[in-house]
């Protein structure tokens, strides 16, 4: 049985904002299936009582003072924008009010 279906792969592509063609989806489905089957080995060892680690170092409480630092100029901020107008980033029409 495969670890991941092609329909799931297509769903992941939409979640990841990747417009993949049919061929690419087929190819990826096979590869992901192979990789997921291999990495599923992590489920063999970790018992319930093992705490998870998200950060390599056990640091806590790193804060900065509430002080201003120089911002970019609007010209710098917009220099790399694919499109700009009225000192704002111009983006294609947005479909939803909120994702």
């Amino acid at each position: 049985m495969s670890a991941i279906t092609r329909a799931e792969v297509a769903h992941l592509a939409r979640l990841s904002r990747l417009a993949l063609g049919e061929d690419e989806l087929d190819h990826l489905a096979a590869q992901l299936d192979q990789i997921i089957s291999a990495v599923a080995r992590v489920q063999e060892v970790a018992a319930e009582d093992i705490p998870p680690t998200s950060h390599a170092l056990p640091l806590t409480n790193v804060y900065r003072a509430d002080e201003n630092r120089p911002s970019l100029t609007p010209e710098q901020a917009l220099a790399a924008a694919p499109a700009a107008e009225q000192q704002r980033f111009r983006v294609p029409r947005i479909l939803d009010e909120e994702a």
Partner: peptide, 26 residues
Amino acid sequence: IMLGTYALSSGYYDAYYGKSQQVRTL
């Protein structure tokens, strides 16, 4: 990106991302 999206998605998080973080502890 696809693999990571999969590992973090609801229903799979504990089995993949969660477990891998436990392995990290080990």
